[in-house]
Design a protein around this nucleic acid. Structure first.
Length: 273
DNA sequence: AATGGAAACAACCGCAGATGG
DNA sequence: CCCATCTGCGGTTGTTTCCAT
């Protein structure tokens, strides 16, 4: 797992992207598709590193990206998602079509975070660091954010039985048939532990989805397991948000083949309060 | 009109998981 | 199994814009 020394390369442009650079990148990707980010600068003739190209495309240039004017509904959702998930920006962004993790993160840091501080009714959850430094290392932690470990090493020692050892793509495939419209290029790991309140899940996901998910959790809790809701495509990845005709996909379970989830339905105990 | 601080936004950077040779 | 590389996430920093004085 070596580091990618992308930004240390000399001779590359840094800072704000110019209109010309944007045009070059957009036309190149539209002609050749995404991927091979490291090669794109060379092939497209950009003096940028691949990482920078990827970021520029995914967060700003890609068709379907909405900019600015975050609505009240979106703001409410961000707040509730953050209450539940912490700083899982990509996951939160997955529930907001057209929004990027970076935009939501900035929005939170500059506006909502301050509001939250000002109106503290209960201690906010600690941030969920991707570096595994959070206190949420255990899925059974008792800090009010039970079962939401970071994606760091500790988190990944919590392995769900059906999906253990699978890649991101194949993890998703485990719950989605090959014919599914769901995009497989997602990385929306969402860890919910056995103590995550069903009410919180219902509030955000809606009753049916939450019930399904919570049932899955419970099923595995009985076996001392944890759940990775990636298998449900929780937080439909930005890449898979739109149909080719530009229409928005159903974000949630409607695109799933429910038959593939039947192993979850061996009980109907879980309904939202 | 000038200026300094705050807010907002864009981009950089480091880390870590996934993957393939 | 090991290692190099690719990809993605999230924290942080730099820059620009806005606004009050």
């Amino acid at each position: 797992m070596g580091r990618n020394p992308c930004f240390s390369n000399d001779g590359l442009n840094k800072g704000a992207w110019t209109t010309m650079e944007d045009k070059i990148l957009s036309s190149y990707i539209q002609a050749h598709g995404e991927g091979k980010w490291r090669d794109i600068p060379k092939l497209a003739g950009l003096k940028r590193c691949g990482k920078s190209c990827r970021m520029r495309w995914l967060k700003y240039l890609k068709p379907g990206i909405k900019r600015g004017n975050i609505s009240q509904d979106e703001e409410d959702l961000i707040v509730r998602m953050h209450d539940l998930l912490g700083n899982k920006w990509s996951l939160i962004a997955g529930r907001l079509p057209g929004r990027t993790d970076n935009e939501i993160k900035n929005y939170w840091n500059t506006r909502l975070g301050k509001k939250a501080k000002q109106s503290v009714h209960s201690p906010p959850p600690p941030p969920l660091s991707s570096k595994g430094k959070s206190a949420l290392g255990s899925p059974l932690s008792t800090n009010g954010y039970q079962g939401l470990p970071s994606s760091g090493p500790a988190a990944n020692k919590v392995v769900q039985p059906q999906l253990a050892g699978r890649t991101r793509e194949t993890k998703l495939d485990a719950a989605t048939p090959a014919t599914s419209n769901l995009d497989t290029d997602v990385n929306r790991d969402f860890w919910v532990g056995p103590s995550t309140p069903i009410g919180s899940i219902c509030e955000i996901l809606g009753d049916s989805e939450a019930s399904t998910i919570h049932h899955g959790i419970t099923h595995d809790v009985q076996q001392n397991q944890s759940w990775d809701l990636d298998a449900f495509n929780f937080g439909n990845g930005a890449d898979g948000r739109f149909h080719e005709d530009g229409g928005e996909k159903g974000n949630y379970l409607e695109d799933l083949d429910i038959d593939s989830l039947t192993f979850l339905f061996d009980s109907d105990l879980w309904t939202c309060p």
